[in-house]
Design a protein around this nucleic acid. Sequence first.
DNA 1: AAATATACATTGACAGGCGAGGTATGTTGT
DNA 2: ACAACATACCTCGCCTGTCAATGTATATTT
Lengths: 109, 109
Amino acid sequence: MSIASDLIRGHTDTIILAQLFKNDSYGYEINKTIQSITDSEYELKEATLYTAFRRLEQQGYIISYWGNETTGARRRYYCITASGKLAYEKLIEEWKIAKELIDKLIKKN
Amino acid sequence: MSIASDLIRGHTDTIILAQLFKNDSYGYEINKTIQSITDSEYELKEATLYTAFRRLEQQGYIISYWGNETTGARRRYYCITASGKLAYEKLIEEWKIAKELIDKLIKKN
DNA sequence: AAATATACATTGACAGGCGAGGTATGTTGT
DNA sequence: ACAACATACCTCGCCTGTCAATGTATATTT
């Protein structure tokens, strides 16, 4: 974890929705995926991850169900809803705008 | 103000340092500049702005002095320090990295 | 006289991130 | 056998940054 979380803050929900947009998954796996994608430059803290799940579920953007593992620890899978997909698309658009705004505001000249 | 502040959050200090890197300025003017740069799509709330000034000054990244206006309201000018310039350069580098990370993490596929 | 613009500042509520702690199962090394 | 580690979940309480609300003061415009 080498990047300041403050800079990613505000994108936690989008990142999770993005992973669930590809396929249903569970907390531990999502975090491993994030580490894999970023070559371990970033990871979500567990407390942050599970807090986000609660938030997203409460907003109706994801729903959860228990996996039927016969061995190993139980897994709570999450599935993105139609509403969640819409929110995700909107968040991506907002990110594009924010990116340009920040570039304009912090550039050197 | 049309963009979610959550997405800019974490960049407030960088934005202020960027403006002060160009030239000394004061709160009100910096905010007008930001609105001008972004065509009023973004602005810093006053409470946020002045909180940031305190923070940056405490960290030694900026210093302040009162302007010698003979008319109108008094102005507290801020000046970026050598340490602040270094911090600013570093924050820009971090932004480049964060931008790529987020792009990787939220993209649709 | 009232409204608006310029210009500063603080307080208290709120939200998100996260360290620390806890629970439980399965595998690997010694 | 037992320790250590990996997998997998969860919550509490602190910290930090944002911001609505509020207040102060000066100058100009209506």
